[in-house]
Design a protein around this nucleic acid. Structure first.
Length: 172
DNA sequence: GCCTCGATTGACT
DNA sequence: GTCAATCGAGGCA
């Protein structure tokens, strides 16, 4: 299996979000396949924290790519990967994964962090060190584009990507 | 310190 | 479809 490096994340957020589908994430000895992602862009994206000035999340979004970004919404943690180049805000939210060597519900951004044991400790650390991502040449089905879920102000462009007919994709 | 809000989820009508 | 649990961050004083 090929391990994903920093260069994978040093590209447009949208491209990274799309190509993250089907990749294998390994953390805490647990393996899961990514089946759903969303792209969050810079200042021009009203749903992105980067459009709300400087804060914990946006400061991480402009860091160098390949970092892990964790934040809270209600009582749940969200797992994101920082994308694009240093100084340019961008991040991909992992919305759903398919568990491979363990058993837990992971069909939602708040649930997969629970299932994988992601905590605030991961915030700011490198994808190359705290988490491993692999490309195992998985045969993707059709990729579906859609609008983001749960955001109050979305763009007029689809920023959500998921694998068609995958049972582990989050709700509706 | 106090108040509000949210990139959520699950239970309910 | 509606609603509440529950908590960190941000705004304000």
């Amino acid at each position: 299996m090929k391990k994903l490096g920093k260069e994978f994340f040093s590209r447009d957020t949208e491209i990274v979000a799309r190509e993250l589908l089907g990749k294998v994430i390994v953390v805490n000895g647990k393996k899961a396949r990514i089946v759903e992602t969303e792209a969050y862009l810079g200042e021009k994206d009203p749903a992105s924290y980067a459009s709300k000035g400087e804060n914990k999340v946006s400061k991480m979004m402009i860091q160098d790519p390949g970092r892990i970004l964790v934040y809270n919404v209600h009582m749940y943690k969200m797992l994101n990967f920082v994308t694009d180049t240093f100084g340019k805000a961008g991040a991909v939210l992992i919305r759903a994964v398919e568990p491979l060597n363990f058993n837990a519900r992971c069909n939602g951004p708040g649930l997969l962090t629970l299932g994988l044991g992601i905590s605030d400790d991961f915030h700011g650390r490198s994808v190359l060190e705290a988490i491993n991502l692999f490309d195992d040449e998985f045969e993707l089905g059709e990729i579906v584009e859609g609008f983001r879920i749960g955001v109050t102000k979305d763009l007029d462009k689809p920023m959500r990507f998921y694998i068609k007919d995958n049972a582990h994709v989050s709700r509706k």
